[in-house]
Design a protein around this nucleic acid. Sequence first.
DNA 1: GATGAATGAGAGTTCATTCAT
DNA 2: TATGAATGAACTCTCATTCAT
Lengths: 197, 197, 197, 197
Amino acid sequence: MAKGDKQEMIIDAALEVFREKGYANARMADIARRAGVSYGLVYHYFGSKEVLFNLIVGTWWNDLYSMMEREKASNADFRQKLVHIITFFLDTYAQKPNLISIFVSEVCRSSVYHTEEGLAKFLKFFSLCEEIMLEGQQKGILKKEISPHHLTYIFYGAIETFISVMVLGKEPLTRKREERAVNAILEVFMDGAKAAV
Amino acid sequence: MAKGDKQEMIIDAALEVFREKGYANARMADIARRAGVSYGLVYHYFGSKEVLFNLIVGTWWNDLYSMMEREKASNADFRQKLVHIITFFLDTYAQKPNLISIFVSEVCRSSVYHTEEGLAKFLKFFSLCEEIMLEGQQKGILKKEISPHHLTYIFYGAIETFISVMVLGKEPLTRKREERAVNAILEVFMDGAKAAV
Amino acid sequence: MAKGDKQEMIIDAALEVFREKGYANARMADIARRAGVSYGLVYHYFGSKEVLFNLIVGTWWNDLYSMMEREKASNADFRQKLVHIITFFLDTYAQKPNLISIFVSEVCRSSVYHTEEGLAKFLKFFSLCEEIMLEGQQKGILKKEISPHHLTYIFYGAIETFISVMVLGKEPLTRKREERAVNAILEVFMDGAKAAV
Amino acid sequence: MAKGDKQEMIIDAALEVFREKGYANARMADIARRAGVSYGLVYHYFGSKEVLFNLIVGTWWNDLYSMMEREKASNADFRQKLVHIITFFLDTYAQKPNLISIFVSEVCRSSVYHTEEGLAKFLKFFSLCEEIMLEGQQKGILKKEISPHHLTYIFYGAIETFISVMVLGKEPLTRKREERAVNAILEVFMDGAKAAV
DNA sequence: GATGAATGAGAGTTCATTCAT
DNA sequence: TATGAATGAACTCTCATTCAT
């Protein structure tokens, strides 16, 4: 068995266990058992529970930052950028449901609320988001009366809640459902929920 | 010292400790020390850590449900109902910051994701929210193209994120800031973030 | 309510609780609740759990000793003395089932095995029993080849096991059943279980 | 050190501690210290105090049942069967004094009186004993006037009391003493204590 | 690399007992 | 006499982590 195999098996097992039980109730023994390795090996590769968790979470944050930087730098239509951001979350849900589940249920909570480092990660993401909102305002696409902060909260809040509900309902993400979610968020965020007169 | 005093002191201490450390890392010893009572008294009154936590959380949910029911039944202008809902969260932040902090960081996370009961509480709230959105649609105020589910996610997601950011930043809630928050959420939710042409 | 009333209610409650749960698992709070008094009052009258238990048990031992002394001193037929001893146990079962249950399940165990005092009480009873057996031998009624010790073990062992089984089966003691038990023990002890040729 | 070693050391330590203090007063810390292992290892192997105790006790019951089944099935002389049963208890006393001490002081008490499972174990043994008594009656060796139940109580009661007294006196079991005990029980049980005329 | 036996600090909980009223 | 709030030592059990093999 190749070295990478077992490392990956442990990470996959950790993703499952952290999602199912949450960080606090996840047992290293559970992770080892799920991965089919001894629990000495988990320590051999990852050093501690915290390191293992941060590795998983760190990967996520980096992916998220990359995507946001990419969007920031891209020449795409502003509306398209928002679509890309929403889609990034939805696609992650489809492909790595454990990861995004951990993100919404654990990361942006325990870690964000109770550690400096977690808070910094979160704020960095918000900061990137705000830059994009600012860009939208500067391009004359978004209202200037609402601060980029607030726009970020509303836009991101919508995404997070959509994801949360899917995670809670363990809903499979069909093509159609994804489209409807993107449309709903974009439509309300851009044009509002008010019925046309 | 009256009996109720100490019970209340324990609850207040619990609110602080649960907020600071989260449920998993909160120590009963911390709570007792913070309340200035002995270890055993916490158990004398509340039986267990879980019961104590659920008591606190249960109070919150009940207040939330009451408010939602009140709004549902009220004759107020639809827009006013939304204002009331947003205001309820903001006011709770102002008056019971520990409680709402626990709500956003613990309740709608660990508890909702890892217990049946927590999930049920959450869904009940969403359900009430959807009924109000439906009412908005039936009155011709909200678009019918977006499902009440989705409207709920966007509206509630915005509120939760506003609260979360305030909690994280430990921001005091001034009159002005509250007004701006209510306006931002309402404006974007109803009319959208798009600049007028 | 007279003073004696509450004391007696506590003792009755203690008898029940000690029987149901055993000494180790009996809670002072259970006893107080069962007696319908506050648990401060239990301490007011009896000082401690141990004292309360010893009071109950002491009463039993004293009754037992009295009976044995009476039999020892009596002029009754030897066989009658054995009947009286057996009957004493059976009657106590009928009248104070909790007390005798505690005796067989608790006293002659925990207390006897793990405290000097308990052991002494037990040996004193055995000693009295042996004296009666010796008397039987001296009167030419019992075999001299078997030591009074051993005769005691067999005689008392039979009684204790009869009682134990009744306690375990929660059997009511009818007149007929009592008679049969006395006869069985006496018949086997005196004449043996062997069928006549 | 082989794995089995420490497990056995823990069981031996547990036997000692349970005998000395009884189940309720035995401390897991005592057991670990006595076994010369860390606290956690006891749990590593045995999971809980109750499991550890039941393991010990279960072994005893199984040995007892095996012996009884063997005797039931054997073609030996009826009298010999009784000798074997008595000898089984006495030999266990000689070889595993802690085990039999726990049996008489704990198992057939707390456990039997306060748990369903314990009661069932006890009754199963009695049932086996009664079958042997019935066999004695059917072979014309035992009187038919006394029920097999009652014969069991007297026979077993004698054994238990002999063992109890030895345990309490911490008496070493010499060859001679064993012989005398067997003889006494058998002689009285079969032929009675009454002196020949 | 890989195992899992071994460790022990630390947590929740219990409950006999005290004491102010 | 009577209450029950208040105490805290003691106990079981957990689990991240270490380390010899």
